[in-house]
Nucleic acid binder design. Sequence first.
RNA 1: GGUGAGGUAGCCAAGCGGUUAGGCAAUGGUUUGCAAAACCAUCACACGCGGGUUCGAAUCCCGUCCUCACCUCCA
Length: 491
Amino acid sequence: MPHPFRLYNTLTRKVEDFLPIEAGKVRLYVCGMTVYDHCHVGHARAMVVFDAFTRYLRHRGWEVTFVRNFTDVDDKIIARALEKGQDPLAFANHFIDEFHVEMAELGLELPTHEPRVSDSMDAIRELIETLVARGHAYPAGGNVWFSVTTCEDYGKLSNQRVDELKSGDDVQGKAHGSDFALWKAAKPGEPAWPSRWGPGRPGWHIECSAMVCKHLGETIDIHGGGLDLVFPHHENEIAQSECGIAKPYARYWMHNGLLTLSGGQKMGKSLGNVINIHTALSEFPAEAIRLYYLHNQYRSPLPWNSDALPEALTMLSRLYDALEKAQAMQGDEEPERVAKDLGEDALAVLELGRGFTEKFLAACDQDFNTAQALAHLFELARAVNRFAAHKKAKKRGRPVVTPALRAFELLRSALGLFTMAPNEFHAVVKSKRLAALGLDRAAVEAKLAERTRARETKDWARSDALRDELAALKIEVLDLADGVDWRVQLD
RNA sequence: GGUGAGGUAGCCAAGCGGUUAGGCAAUGGUUUGCAAAACCAUCACACGCGGGUUCGAAUCCCGUCCUCACCUCCA
């Protein structure tokens, strides 16, 4: 039996108990990319949030059907492709392929379905025909427009009133300034699909309505996307679908907050202030990026600056260090006995570990509050580190740290973090940071080896000089109890 | 102008009527050949401002000042 949870619903502006249409099942649709450019770190937030949310739901026992579309037929795609002398669909496909590679690298699971506009023409035309037949849409000069004034509760998601909207582009043939295109007549040289209104292509909003219906049914449980899609995109989807099928479209609307720059201004393609996810992934491990997104509540704006990823990596490294220490512990006694013998710190890590699952999932159950859920993990990690300083922890500590190890496993299955072994993680960090600074690994390791030789003969002057040289290259040397390690500075 | 979100210690950020959230930075300490990492302590009895309700408010109510987003393509 799946576990209940609560979710903020943009439609009602309240956190509500989630009630599924069909017991045990969640039908989730999330607006994906319009593929005319690279995926940036703002898009990636939405992708990671809904990937993590899906993992959490499945962990909680829900059967999730997750659909995320690609908009591969669109004005901007066509304009950009023709500018470069390329076929628009091939141009879009190129970015879809890149998106898949980057999302795999980011550690995303594939959605159940990834429909494309170009594959959904039948469903789109069918819905438009229904809307025309029902009097909610009208053809004019090869275009088909949706008539917002025929939709009684138009504006219910964004609380807009038709008569107060600034009127959009003044296109000939439109009956009302806020009417929007369902079908656009093709101009010469543009890709076109046949229809009873003449050759053309779908408008932006109709595709999602059609794909939702085709893959998930007439009414779905949760519709997600970025907060910037509330109006007009999601508002228009509701209008089209509810006028077309005369049933509610989506029961819960879940919107992720946007990435913001200094001063709170949002990051967006139109503002030209974006960082591609490819760039971030080349310099930081995927899980550091994931932690950056998930350490904030998904609805809050998330500030982006040059410290964001270094800070997230610092946090993640500390957590992996705790995991590594816990994994290194041995022993197979009764946990209570070990806790009794080794003192307060052992007892603390045992108790925090045992209480973790409940606290972690309770936070996720309350509007997917990963910020609070992760705070519990930091408490646990500190307890592990504190206990690890005990001189008998390594030999006998395993039993008291076993619940903590399970906590890290829970993070992997419920949020997609800690999917690597700690040594693997450290290796990834090193290679990405070296690449980010353009450093040569062999040269660094040669200097380190030379320094180790100097230390063996207690030639501290030489050893420290080499450490300074490495520091100048932004390499920090760590002399550990069982050898030498190093890392690349983050500032 | 319309609609919505928000203002929490140096910075970021949970909480939303009564128990130290958490992170990052900084400073001191333990440790170390010296460092780094880790741990401990401090910064932190903080909640835009002014009233009110309450035994009790960051949390509720009224007023007020700011910030951001959407209303045009945007995750």
